[in-house]
Simulated scan of single mutants.
Amino acid sequence: MARQGLFVGLSTLDLVYLVASPPHNNQKIVASDYMVAAGGPATNAGITFSYLGNQATFLGVLGVHPIAQLIRADLEIHGVTIVDSDPYRIAPPAISSIMVTQSTGDRAVVSINATQVQIAAEQLPAMDLDNVNIILIDGHQMAISKVIAQEAYSKNIPIVIDGGSWKAGFEEILPLASYVICSANFHPPNCCRPEEVFAYLQGLEIPNIAITHGEKSIQYFSIEKIGEVPVPAVNPVDTLGAGDIFHGAFCHYILQENFTDALTLSAKVASHSCQFFGTRRWMKEETNADI
Protein backbone atom coordinates (compact mmCIF):
# COMPACT_ATOMS: atom_id res chain seq x y z
CA MET A 1 0.00 0.00 0.00
CA ALA A 2 1.35 3.41 -0.99
CA ARG A 3 2.23 5.67 1.92
CA GLN A 4 2.00 9.45 2.01
CA GLY A 5 5.18 11.44 2.65
CA LEU A 6 5.69 15.19 3.03
CA PHE A 7 9.12 16.58 2.14
CA VAL A 8 9.81 20.11 3.37
CA GLY A 9 12.72 22.25 2.26
CA LEU A 10 14.90 23.16 -0.68
CA SER A 11 14.40 22.79 -4.41
CA THR A 12 17.03 23.92 -6.91
CA LEU A 13 17.77 23.48 -10.57
CA ASP A 14 20.91 21.36 -10.86
CA LEU A 15 23.22 21.73 -13.85
CA VAL A 16 25.54 18.74 -13.60
CA TYR A 17 28.66 18.12 -15.71
CA LEU A 18 30.83 15.01 -15.88
CA VAL A 19 34.46 16.10 -16.21
CA ALA A 20 37.93 14.58 -16.13
CA SER A 21 38.82 17.10 -13.41
CA PRO A 22 37.56 20.51 -12.25
CA PRO A 23 39.01 23.47 -14.20
CA HIS A 24 41.88 25.59 -12.99
CA ASN A 25 41.71 29.40 -12.95
CA ASN A 26 40.94 30.79 -16.42
CA GLN A 27 40.71 27.29 -17.90
CA LYS A 28 37.88 26.12 -20.12
CA ILE A 29 37.07 22.41 -20.21
CA VAL A 30 34.62 20.24 -22.14
CA ALA A 31 32.35 17.90 -20.20
CA SER A 32 31.86 14.33 -21.40
CA ASP A 33 28.23 14.26 -20.23
CA TYR A 34 25.68 16.52 -18.53
CA MET A 35 22.21 16.52 -17.01
CA VAL A 36 19.63 19.05 -15.89
CA ALA A 37 17.29 18.10 -13.05
CA ALA A 38 15.55 19.39 -9.97
CA GLY A 39 17.80 19.14 -6.93
CA GLY A 40 17.90 19.84 -3.22
CA PRO A 41 17.72 17.47 -0.24
CA ALA A 42 13.93 17.41 0.23
CA THR A 43 13.36 17.33 -3.53
CA ASN A 44 15.59 14.35 -4.27
CA ALA A 45 14.32 12.55 -1.18
CA GLY A 46 10.73 13.05 -2.27
CA ILE A 47 11.45 11.79 -5.78
CA THR A 48 13.14 8.70 -4.32
CA PHE A 49 10.22 8.07 -1.98
CA SER A 50 7.84 8.32 -4.94
CA TYR A 51 10.01 6.02 -7.07
CA LEU A 52 9.85 3.35 -4.35
CA GLY A 53 6.09 3.20 -4.70
CA ASN A 54 4.73 5.93 -2.43
CA GLN A 55 2.97 9.26 -2.80
CA ALA A 56 5.26 12.21 -2.12
CA THR A 57 4.45 15.88 -1.65
CA PHE A 58 7.13 18.57 -1.81
CA LEU A 59 6.59 21.71 0.28
CA GLY A 60 8.88 24.62 -0.49
CA VAL A 61 9.28 27.54 -2.87
CA LEU A 62 9.13 27.49 -6.66
CA GLY A 63 7.32 30.57 -8.00
CA VAL A 64 6.60 31.55 -11.60
CA HIS A 65 10.04 32.22 -13.06
CA PRO A 66 10.71 30.14 -16.23
CA ILE A 67 13.49 28.25 -14.44
CA ALA A 68 11.01 27.23 -11.74
CA GLN A 69 8.91 25.59 -14.45
CA LEU A 70 11.80 23.22 -15.20
CA ILE A 71 11.89 22.18 -11.55
CA ARG A 72 8.12 21.83 -11.47
CA ALA A 73 8.14 19.65 -14.60
CA ASP A 74 10.77 17.29 -13.17
CA LEU A 75 8.84 16.85 -9.93
CA GLU A 76 5.63 16.18 -11.82
CA ILE A 77 7.30 13.66 -14.13
CA HIS A 78 8.39 11.72 -11.04
CA GLY A 79 4.94 11.79 -9.48
CA VAL A 80 5.64 14.34 -6.74
CA THR A 81 2.82 16.69 -5.75
CA ILE A 82 3.89 20.32 -5.23
CA VAL A 83 2.76 22.73 -2.53
CA ASP A 84 4.33 26.09 -3.35
CA SER A 85 4.64 28.44 -0.37
CA ASP A 86 5.33 31.43 -2.64
CA PRO A 87 3.50 30.65 -5.90
CA TYR A 88 3.72 34.22 -7.28
CA ARG A 89 7.42 34.69 -6.66
CA ILE A 90 9.01 36.15 -9.80
CA ALA A 91 12.68 35.85 -8.80
CA PRO A 92 14.54 32.80 -10.11
CA PRO A 93 14.99 29.78 -7.86
CA ALA A 94 18.40 28.68 -6.68
CA ILE A 95 20.61 27.13 -9.34
CA SER A 96 23.38 24.68 -8.51
CA SER A 97 26.37 24.23 -10.80
CA ILE A 98 27.99 20.87 -10.18
CA MET A 99 31.07 19.17 -11.59
CA VAL A 100 31.50 15.44 -11.08
CA THR A 101 35.02 14.02 -11.46
CA GLN A 102 34.76 11.02 -13.75
CA SER A 103 37.49 8.90 -12.16
CA THR A 104 36.33 9.18 -8.55
CA GLY A 105 32.67 10.26 -8.52
CA ASP A 106 33.55 13.20 -6.27
CA ARG A 107 31.54 16.36 -6.86
CA ALA A 108 32.17 20.07 -6.52
CA VAL A 109 29.07 22.22 -5.99
CA VAL A 110 28.39 25.95 -6.26
CA SER A 111 24.92 26.97 -5.08
CA ILE A 112 23.11 29.74 -3.28
CA ASN A 113 20.72 27.29 -1.50
CA ALA A 114 17.66 28.84 0.22
CA THR A 115 19.30 31.73 2.07
CA GLN A 116 17.52 34.31 -0.11
CA VAL A 117 14.21 32.45 -0.34
CA GLN A 118 13.07 32.16 3.26
CA ILE A 119 9.32 31.90 3.82
CA ALA A 120 7.63 33.21 6.97
CA ALA A 121 5.43 30.90 9.00
CA GLU A 122 2.31 32.91 8.11
CA GLN A 123 2.92 32.18 4.41
CA LEU A 124 2.46 28.46 4.95
CA PRO A 125 -0.52 27.29 2.89
CA ALA A 126 -3.28 25.46 4.73
CA MET A 127 -2.34 21.79 4.84
CA ASP A 128 -4.09 18.66 6.06
CA LEU A 129 -1.62 16.24 7.65
CA ASP A 130 -4.22 13.65 8.65
CA ASN A 131 -3.26 11.24 5.85
CA VAL A 132 0.49 11.87 6.02
CA ASN A 133 2.52 8.87 7.21
CA ILE A 134 5.95 10.48 7.47
CA ILE A 135 7.56 13.92 7.15
CA LEU A 136 11.12 14.82 6.17
CA ILE A 137 12.59 18.23 6.99
CA ASP A 138 15.92 19.33 5.51
CA GLY A 139 16.22 22.61 7.43
CA HIS A 140 16.26 24.94 4.45
CA GLN A 141 12.83 26.45 5.25
CA MET A 142 13.04 26.60 9.01
CA ALA A 143 10.02 28.80 9.81
CA ILE A 144 7.43 26.71 7.97
CA SER A 145 9.22 23.53 9.01
CA LYS A 146 8.71 24.44 12.67
CA VAL A 147 4.96 24.86 12.16
CA ILE A 148 4.71 21.55 10.29
CA ALA A 149 6.84 19.75 12.88
CA GLN A 150 4.75 21.00 15.80
CA GLU A 151 1.51 19.81 14.20
CA ALA A 152 3.05 16.50 13.15
CA TYR A 153 4.35 15.91 16.68
CA SER A 154 0.89 16.54 18.13
CA LYS A 155 -0.54 13.95 15.72
CA ASN A 156 2.22 11.37 16.30
CA ILE A 157 3.41 11.56 12.69
CA PRO A 158 7.07 10.49 12.53
CA ILE A 159 9.48 13.28 11.62
CA VAL A 160 12.79 12.58 9.89
CA ILE A 161 15.47 15.28 10.03
CA ASP A 162 18.02 15.43 7.21
CA GLY A 163 20.97 16.95 9.04
CA GLY A 164 23.29 17.77 6.16
CA SER A 165 24.75 20.68 8.10
CA TRP A 166 23.78 22.66 11.18
CA LYS A 167 21.29 25.47 10.53
CA ALA A 168 19.98 28.04 12.98
CA GLY A 169 16.54 27.00 14.15
CA PHE A 170 17.23 23.28 14.24
CA GLU A 171 17.38 23.49 18.04
CA GLU A 172 13.61 24.12 18.08
CA ILE A 173 12.70 21.31 15.67
CA LEU A 174 15.09 18.53 16.68
CA PRO A 175 13.30 17.73 19.99
CA LEU A 176 10.18 16.91 17.96
CA ALA A 177 11.96 14.42 15.68
CA SER A 178 11.58 10.65 15.67
CA TYR A 179 14.66 10.12 13.50
CA VAL A 180 17.68 12.35 12.97
CA ILE A 181 20.09 11.27 10.25
CA CYS A 182 23.15 13.51 10.02
CA SER A 183 26.10 13.74 7.75
CA ALA A 184 29.61 13.93 9.19
CA ASN A 185 29.38 17.70 8.50
CA PHE A 186 26.50 18.21 10.95
CA HIS A 187 27.94 20.11 13.90
CA PRO A 188 25.55 21.47 16.54
CA PRO A 189 26.94 24.25 18.77
CA ASN A 190 30.17 23.20 20.51
CA CYS A 191 30.16 19.80 18.76
CA CYS A 192 33.02 18.71 16.54
CA ARG A 193 33.31 14.93 16.94
CA PRO A 194 30.64 12.27 16.32
CA GLU A 195 30.47 11.36 20.01
CA GLU A 196 29.71 15.00 20.84
CA VAL A 197 26.97 15.10 18.19
CA PHE A 198 25.44 11.91 19.59
CA ALA A 199 25.57 13.34 23.12
CA TYR A 200 23.91 16.58 22.01
CA LEU A 201 21.09 14.77 20.19
CA GLN A 202 20.60 12.21 22.95
CA GLY A 203 20.27 15.13 25.36
CA LEU A 204 17.24 16.21 23.34
CA GLU A 205 15.72 12.74 23.91
CA ILE A 206 15.68 11.87 20.21
CA PRO A 207 15.02 8.12 20.10
CA ASN A 208 16.83 7.26 16.85
CA ILE A 209 20.02 8.91 15.59
CA ALA A 210 22.44 8.07 12.79
CA ILE A 211 25.56 9.70 11.38
CA THR A 212 26.60 8.84 7.83
CA HIS A 213 30.22 8.93 6.69
CA GLY A 214 30.05 8.53 2.92
CA GLU A 215 31.27 5.09 1.94
CA LYS A 216 32.19 4.26 5.55
CA SER A 217 29.89 2.58 8.07
CA ILE A 218 26.89 4.44 9.48
CA GLN A 219 27.02 5.02 13.23
CA TYR A 220 23.70 4.82 15.02
CA PHE A 221 21.98 5.09 18.39
CA SER A 222 18.52 3.65 18.93
CA ILE A 223 16.83 3.30 22.31
CA GLU A 224 19.98 2.59 24.30
CA LYS A 225 21.51 0.52 21.48
CA ILE A 226 24.68 1.72 19.75
CA GLY A 227 26.21 0.18 16.66
CA GLU A 228 27.31 0.51 13.06
CA VAL A 229 25.70 -0.39 9.75
CA PRO A 230 28.08 -1.20 6.87
CA VAL A 231 27.71 0.58 3.55
CA PRO A 232 27.94 -1.61 0.41
CA ALA A 233 31.20 -1.15 -1.47
CA VAL A 234 30.76 0.07 -5.05
CA ASN A 235 32.88 1.70 -7.73
CA PRO A 236 31.35 5.20 -7.66
CA VAL A 237 30.60 7.09 -10.84
CA ASP A 238 28.82 9.99 -9.14
CA THR A 239 28.14 10.63 -5.45
CA LEU A 240 25.88 13.63 -6.13
CA GLY A 241 22.60 13.34 -4.25
CA ALA A 242 23.50 10.07 -2.55
CA GLY A 243 22.59 11.46 0.86
CA ASP A 244 19.27 12.80 -0.42
CA ILE A 245 18.46 9.44 -1.99
CA PHE A 246 19.41 7.73 1.27
CA HIS A 247 16.92 9.90 3.16
CA GLY A 248 14.13 9.28 0.67
CA ALA A 249 14.73 5.55 0.83
CA PHE A 250 14.84 5.71 4.64
CA CYS A 251 11.41 7.37 4.71
CA HIS A 252 10.14 4.43 2.65
CA TYR A 253 11.77 1.62 4.62
CA ILE A 254 11.22 2.96 8.13
CA LEU A 255 7.47 2.58 7.59
CA GLN A 256 8.05 -1.17 7.15
CA GLU A 257 11.24 -2.09 9.01
CA ASN A 258 13.07 -1.44 12.28
CA PHE A 259 15.63 1.35 12.48
CA THR A 260 18.77 -0.63 11.70
CA ASP A 261 17.16 -2.58 8.85
CA ALA A 262 15.87 0.67 7.36
CA LEU A 263 19.39 2.13 7.52
CA THR A 264 20.82 -1.00 5.87
CA LEU A 265 18.31 -1.02 3.01
CA SER A 266 18.64 2.74 2.48
CA ALA A 267 22.43 2.45 2.28
CA LYS A 268 21.98 -0.20 -0.40
CA VAL A 269 19.80 2.11 -2.48
CA ALA A 270 22.12 5.10 -2.05
CA SER A 271 25.22 3.05 -2.91
CA HIS A 272 23.47 1.70 -5.99
CA SER A 273 22.69 5.24 -7.13
CA CYS A 274 26.38 6.17 -6.96
CA GLN A 275 27.11 3.79 -9.83
CA PHE A 276 25.31 6.07 -12.29
CA PHE A 277 25.90 9.62 -13.45
CA GLY A 278 23.37 12.13 -12.15
CA THR A 279 20.50 11.69 -9.75
CA ARG A 280 17.98 9.98 -12.04
CA ARG A 281 19.63 7.30 -14.18
CA TRP A 282 19.78 4.80 -11.32
CA MET A 283 15.98 4.73 -11.41
CA LYS A 284 15.77 3.28 -14.90
CA GLU A 285 14.26 -0.18 -14.90
CA GLU A 286 17.29 -1.89 -16.42
CA THR A 287 19.56 -0.55 -13.65
CA ASN A 288 17.62 -1.47 -10.54
CA ALA A 289 17.62 -5.25 -10.46
CA ASP A 290 19.84 -5.29 -7.39
CA ILE A 291 17.78 -3.02 -5.13
Rank of each mutant, 00 (worst) to 15 (best):
P87Y: 06
N133Y: 06
R3P: 00
Y88S: 11
P125I: 04
Y153T: 02
D244Q: 08
T48H: 07
R3T: 02
P194S: 05
Q219H: 14
N208S: 12
F250V: 07
P175S: 09
L10N: 15
L136P: 02
D138M: 09
T279W: 00
N235W: 00
R193L: 08
Q27R: 08
I77K: 14
T12I: 15
Q69H: 15
S21M: 00
A152E: 02
E257Q: 13
G9N: 07
I47F: 00
Q4W: 02
C191E: 12
A233Y: 02
G53D: 03
P232W: 06
I181L: 10
I29Q: 08
I226E: 13
Q202T: 08
A38T: 04
S145G: 09
L136I: 03
Q123T: 00
A108F: 06
W166G: 01
I112N: 14
I137W: 12
V117K: 10
L240H: 03
H24A: 05
H65R: 01
F277G: 04
A233H: 04
V231M: 08
S103L: 13
V269T: 07
L6E: 10
Q123V: 00
A126F: 01
V83L: 10
P175V: 10
P158R: 03
A121L: 05
P92R: 13
Q55K: 14
M1V: 15
A68S: 15
K155G: 00
